[in-house]
Design a protein around this nucleic acid. Structure first.
Lengths: 132, 132
DNA sequence: CAGTATCCCAACGGATACTG
DNA sequence: CAGTATCCGTTGGGATACTG
């Protein structure tokens, strides 16, 4: 057959793109993904849709500006959807797309890794600082 | 028994730390990990030790400054080791620690995700830009 | 080769004020 | 509530020059 599956096409894409190359568009996409706020937002949406204010409360310390900016970028990249409910006051919900759900486990794993290994990192820092 | 395994202690750590909290040290560790250069460096070291110049060549476009800075931070956090061989000219090798090997698959998965899904992101951007 | 030290500009990102 | 706009200090990060 001449037809290719979506999986085959993605496998081909993985071979064609290379984030080690400076000019590759994946380099810029990697920049978007390797972002503290993006990781927390995507992880927070694992359980289902969240309102803007819910995300702001959950991700303590994020500014209005950074939260909106992060959400916009992720919306544009097809990771999440933004749904406006016309009411007073306005209600806006954010939800992961299938692409976003695909990405979610990866982002969660970074956050979990940090939480799980914080102590080991502390010990490493103590050793490093001790001999400097 | 009163003894706890390393696994149990790490599970406890995961419960004690929470990157959603602004003051949590994992928030800052997350910042370090969610870094374009850190991701590429850690991914590049999967196959074994690499010299400074090898890393610089492999990670196209990285500046001397950023590469050294990234390597220093990761060394301090116990992710990799820096080994100096006294010769002329000096030879320096970087290698993942057990902690680094633990982190490696996570970082590789982000890079791979970007390479695999670049096309889907392009399509999403085209749709988003078309209705704006 | 590996690294440090400056210089310097662009961006990141917080604070605040204002709108539908 | 959700978002935009502006101001403004801090940091990121490249370019260049110099050292063991």
């Amino acid at each position: 057959m001449a037809t290719t599956t979506a999986g085959q096409r993605r496998e081909q894409a993985r071979r064609d793109y290379d984030a080690y190359l400076a000019g590759c568009p994946t380099r810029e996409l990697l920049s978007t993904l390797t972002d503290k706020w993006a990781a927390l937002v995507i992880a927070a949406l694992a359980g289902g849709p969240q309102r803007h204010s819910e995300l702001a409360r959950r991700i303590a310390g994020v500014s209005q500006k950074m939260l909106t900016q992060t959400l916009r970028t992720l919306e544009r990249d097809g990771v999440l959807t933004r749904t406006v409910t016309a009411s007073v006051p306005t209600r806006v919900d954010y939800e992961l797309t299938p692409l976003g759900h695909d990405l979610n486990p990866v982002m969660v794993s970074i956050k979990t890794w940090a939480e799980t290994n914080m102590d080991r990192v502390f010990q490493a820092r103590a050793r490093y600082d001790a001999r400097s």
